[in-house]
Structures are given as C-alpha cells and as structure tokens.
Nucleic acid binder design. Structure first.
Lengths: 391, 391
DNA sequence: GACCTAAATATAAGATCCAAATAAATTCTC
DNA sequence: GAGAATTTATTTGGATCTTATATTTAGGTC
C-alpha cells in the first residue's frame, strides 16, 4: 500500500517498474489514493514527450492534501520548517529561547507561536498540517517519551504532542539529523554526530535507526568514563562547539604562548572565534583543534569498531567550520585494523540538519502509511453513512 | 506461513490462539505442512485429558524430517552438537585443535570428521541434516563471509559452507551466543560478551541482532584505544580469561606480596587458577579480579550508554567462575546517570553458549521459512511430473 | 482512413483469508 | 442407550488482493 513514487508526476508504468506490481494493481491502488485525497490525476498535457501509443494517465501528489511541519526544539533555539508533501520548503523561522526560564509550558507555547507564524509565512494554517515532527535533545522512546529520571530531558521533551498542529511525533534530535543525512546520502551504517552544545549520535546500523529500550541509543555518556576531563570536571557529553568555547575561555590566561584569543574578553569567546583563530594560525586555537580532533577520532574508533560504522557525519551548526578538526582526526585514526576506517565527513546541512530531518521523517511516515492519515479535504474522508447490513 | 507452535503436540485451537488466524486457515496451513513433511498428525490417543466435544486433531513436528547441527568452530576447540527439531540434544562432541597448524583445509576436515562422529552418536547420518550453523571467531557479513584483509579471520572462517552436511550458514560466534542467551531469557536490548580468549560481543538492540557492513558489529577493538595496556602491549581484544592468565604469569615475580600463584610454574598458570586463588583470598589474584572487573565495568558503561543496553551477559567457558569479577564490576558502575544501569549477569550455558546458539539459530531459520527447505523423505518433495500445459 | 502502438480497461482466475453454516465425534444426562 | 450438549472439523460463500489474458481506447504514422 506504500508508493515509492511521489517526487513528481508519474505514470502507472513507472510505478509498475518501481514496485514490481501489475498494471491493474497499480491503477487500483492509485484509484484508492485519488479517492483518499493523496493523489490527483494530471490532465494538463503540457510537457508530454509525445510518445507512441495511448497516452499514459499521469498522477501527482495532491498539494492541497496538506503540509508537514518540522520543529527543532533545542535547548536555546527553536527552528520551525513548513514543507509541502514533496519536501519543498514553504517557510522557516528560527528563534532563540531560554528554556530554563520558560519551563515546559513556556517551551510549548513558544513552539506553538513559532509554528503558527511559520505557517502564516507559508500561506497556510494549522488545519493544513498533517503531521508535525519534533526533535528534542533527550532520549525518546518509541512512544515519544523521555526517561522519567532526567529533569533536563523532561524539560526538553516538554509535552508537545497535544499542543502542536496535526498528528505529532517526538524524536531525538540526533536521530532526526541522521534521517536527514541518510536522505542526502543513503548508507546502511552511518553515525551522525550532532555536536554543537551537546554530543548526541543518531546511529543507523544495518539500515535501521537504533533506539534502545528508553531511546538512549546514541547517548555519549561513555565519554565521561574514558576522558578524565583534564582541566575541567564537566561532562564528556559536551559537544565540540561547547568544548572549543570552554577550553578557550579557561586557558587564555594560563596559556604560555601568545594567542590572539586574549584580545577578546574571556566571557565573549565563542566556538566560532576559536575556529577562526586557528585558521589564522593562532597556536592556542590550533592546540584546541588538535584536542577536539583527538576526541573525535576516539569516538569514530568506538563507533566503527563496535558497530562497524562506515561513515561518521558531523552535523549541527558548527559543521561548516569543522573541517580542520576532521583533518586532524583522520590522521589519528589507527591504520592497522583489519576493517576499513570510517569516513569522517561534515554535514552540508549546517544548523538545519535536525529540522530537515524532522520534515524528512514526517514525509517518511506519511509515505509508509498514507491511509492512516486523512489528508485535508479528502474527496471521501471518513466514510459517510453507508446503506448497509447495520440492521 | 510460519508456525509458532512447535514445542510439543498442539491442536488447531491452540494454533488459532497463538496466531490469531481462523480455524479453517490454521488447518489449511497444517495440511500443507503435513504434506511438506514438517508435521505429522498424532493418532495415539494417550494423554488426552478427556474433554467434552469432538476431539481435536493433534499435530506434532515430524521427528523424521531431519536434524540440525551446530558447530562452534573456535580457534583452539571445535564443538559439534546434533539436535532434533525441538532442540533436544542428540549428540555432542568436543575436540581441541591447533588451527594454525591445521590451516583452513585442516579446520574444515576436522569439523567434517567431528560432525560425522557426532551424527553417528545421534544415530543418524549426513543426509538427515537439514541445516548446519557454524560459529566462527571472526566478523561475518550477511553472505557468510569475513573481511578480506584479516588473515586470522580468513583462517577461522575457513570455507565450511561447501563441506558440511545440509544447508550451511556461517555466523559470528558471539552473535550465536547472543541468540542462545536470547532464547534463555528474551530481552530486546542485550549484549552478550563472549569472553574467553578473545573479546567479542553479540549485540541485540531493539530486538534485532546488529551485524554492520562487514559483520564487524560487536568487535571490541575500541578497547585498544582507551586501555593503554599497562604492562602489556597486547591488544585490548583479549578476553577476560586470556587477561587473567597473562597478567598472572607476568606478575608473579614482580608482585611484592605473597601469592599462592607462585607455587605453580609460571607457564602453567591458567585463568581458572587465578579465579580459584582469588576465592582462597590470594591478594595478587584478588587484584587481578579487581582489574578485570574495572575493565568489564567500562565495557558495560559503553554498551549501556551508547546503545541503551539493559543487560550484559558474560558467556563462554569462564562464565561459571566469573561471579567475583561481576560483583566488582557492579560496584564500579557509575550511579549518577539518568538511565538505569545495565544488569551484569553470567551465562548459565558455560562453554556451550556458542554451539547452543548455533542450534537455536538453525531452528529459528527453519521455523521462519520451513517451505524453503525440503525435509527428509517428504511425502511430496520436489513436485513430481505434473500433467499440465507444458505443450 | 488504415494501421501501429502503448496504455487503459474488462474479465477471469487463483490465492489467501474470514465468517457462517453444516457435519462429525465425543461426553454428559436421563 | 437415546438424545442433548459441546467441541471440533469441514464445507461453503464471500471479500480482498493479485496476476494473466483479452479487449478497448487514444493517440500517433503512413
């Protein structure tokens, strides 16, 4: 009942090739999907390459069926993205927030408002939304819930399900980033490291996203055990961006050599400053880059050796500046293992990886079970009263 | 087409309850399986609890359909197990080998001979074997092959497929141990550590066994990176048994205190001696136990934090003596994580975990697709000549 | 217009399953 | 032992999904 062809206008013949089904069956399914409101027949004859034989009937996704919403509900930033059923962006908005000041209800309200505005930008309303997928920086189990013990996790997974438009599904942010990367370049064994403020990984092994009992797969707490955090007592779960900032701020005074980073006020140094200084040849910054690379290399080794991961993607806001760290990490990968080394690459999605993955995930869910969702203004929605054997 | 009820005699009513299908459907399937030779109807009325109504037809697995063979093809030891379709052991043999002296062909020949003898013990022959599952200490991909680069792996995965009776499937040994443990106590997120000479893990996440691109999931090479092997330069991939032995042998001279282990000739010390000395209160042995526990705790932390594993099972020959190491490791698990700690338990299968898992895996494959395999002396095997439209 | 072609339709048939009616085999009751 | 009650087996019809095989249709080309 799933149809793989949804990108553009398609004919029954193409669907037959893609699904292996017979023409009669394909047309039957298309009929059903037209009835349900998911597809519409294209009557406009423009652009047909004038072939021999009877012209094929052509179908396309019915745009009016609705839109999907992706929401990256980070700790300090919300991003909403409205897209049509082909994944084309119709609107996007970003807004900084202070989650700890807002609390759970405040996060939900801020998300509601941001989505509402983004929908306006896109020229549609809440009733057009078929499915909203939310990414949160917390483990999320298959029911959309986070472990009861974690206060931070409960704040992040703030109970969006009832408040957002359309059906709502909640997912871990790194998992969504992995979905986005998987859509960009399919691979059966990838890890996507979401590495800005916190470290989190979306793990795809044997073509499937790992979740774990409570959604904890991909958490990076294990770094705490091995990295005895020289200098700082904080968690190994800090992302590369956070580490670059913290290390720089902590070391500009004690560092023996000269460093351009001192010119900045200590509290003002951001991760981006460190990367930029390193590009300019600053020795302290280069040292920090080296340590970040070493850290990344260790993570890559664990992922590749324990899970046979073939590609490690660094995603998140810092992915555009992460190049030098990757180069350093590549040099540190052990060369003598029997298995090929994982490729270390930077995401091309930048800060939008999570929200793009959210949209992609929504589209995947809809494609998988279109008949479980009612498109807007379906020609025959929930069945009207039937004459029948209800006596 | 799969049937879940195969343990004992069962009725259509029971199968209906188990599968949710209709009586008519269940009986139809049973008919087909009787035809194919997998089931037989029980006519002996003994043991029927004398109920009201028409007596149910009762079916059971047809023992004569064949047997399965499990083979643990370790580096220094082969174990073969012949079992019937209910998993009951019909014969078992173990034999020590020197793989490096035998080479690939020698390993295959030794396996052939061992299986042949075990089949004799069980009162059957090679033609009775439906499926042989082989566990090897090497990564194995879904095609049964090991990475081309690894010389040791190629020696272990010695090309058994063409030489052993029945259909043959090759699997990683730790993965098979995981299957065996899973059969003992089902759980969706378990790691089974096969830890005698070498470390290897069978990882079950979200109810599925992880494989990885080249079958490398569960390899423990990452330990090399973190454990800088104090004292010994050897690989972190050594199992707990190997480490206990190596550490004891290396330290009996340099150890400052008194230790009963000195009474043994250095080259004669085995892992079992260390565990026994520790039970007797020997300080060096206790120290080694402590270090093994610390190592195990670190592994457990990685598995639980990265994969949200809820249970870590220690399997293999040393599992019976591993208790004190587990106790030590449990005390070292961090207490402050938001997620529950993994349970550390010893396997109850001892040295038979892999071979038991091989048999279990064979039975699972047969249950999943009975009609893909022809049972022996099927009443209607490969279809005989049909009158048909073959003109 | 005759002819060709590829697709759409129509029709029949098989497979799979369920639901309901019918038949069979047994125990229980009188 | 006859008949009721009970439980299961068997049969029948139908719904659904799919394939296979005509047959029709909507365009081209000559």
């Amino acid at each position: 009942m799933r149809f793989a062809l949804q990108e553009q206008v398609f004919t029954a013949g193409e669907a037959m090739a893609a699904t292996g089904l017979t023409r009669a069956t394909v047309l039957g399914v298309c009929d059903g999907l037209v009835d349900a409101g998911w597809l519409e027949e294209v009557v406009d004859g423009a652009g047909v390459p004038a072939s021999k034989g009877r012209p094929a009937r052509r179908y396309q996704l019915r745009e009016a069926a609705g839109v999907v919403v992706g929401l990256d509900a980070g700790e300090s930033c919300l991003t909403a993205l409205v897209a049509d059923l082909r994944g084309r962006q119709l609107g996007k908005r970003r807004r900084n927030i202070d989650s700890h000041a807002l609390g759970r209800a405040g996060r939900v309200a801020a998300a509601q408002e941001l989505i509402s505005r983004t929908l306006s930008d896109a020229g549609c309303g809440a009733s057009d939304v078929l499915l909203t997928v939310v990414g949160v920086p917390a483990p999320v189990d298959s029911a959309g819930l986070s472990p009861a013990g974690g206060e931070f996790w409960q704040l992040m997974n703030a109970g969006f399900a009832k408040a957002l438009p359309g059906a709502v599904s909640i997912e871990n942010d790194a998992n969504l980033a992995a979905v986005a990367e998987q859509a960009q370049e399919p691979s059966a064994n990838v890890a996507t490291l979401l590495s800005g403020e916190r470290f989190g990984a979306g793990l795809i092994v044997d073509g499937r996203l790992l979740r774990g009992r409570q959604g904890g797969a991909g958490e990076m707490r294990f770094l705490d055990v091995f990295e005895s955090s020289p200098g700082l007592g904080d968690g190994g779960s800090d992302g590369l961006g956070a580490l670059a900032r913290k290390w720089a701020r902590a070391e500009i005074q004690s560092y023996a050599g000269t460093t351009s980073l001192r010119e900045l006020s200590g509290d003002a140094i951001q991760a981006e400053d460190v990367f930029q200084a390193a590009r300019g040849g600053d020795p302290l910054a280069a040292d920090i880059i080296g340590r970040l690379g070493a850290r990344l290399a260790r993570i890559a080794v664990v992922l590749s050796s324990l899970l046979d991961i073939e590609r490690v993607v660094i995603a998140g806001g810092i992915s555009s500046a992460i190049g030098p760290v990757l180069e350093h990490a590549r040099r540190l990968l052990p060369a003598d293992t029997g298995l090929p080394l994982p490729a270390l690459v930077a995401s091309t999605l930048g800060a939008d990886a999570v929200v793009q993955g959210a949209v992609e995930s929504a589209l995947i869910q809809i494609r998988r079970e279109p008949l479980a969702i009612f498109p807007k203004a379906a020609r025959s929605g929930p069945r009207t009263v039937q004459e029948g054997p209800a006596a």
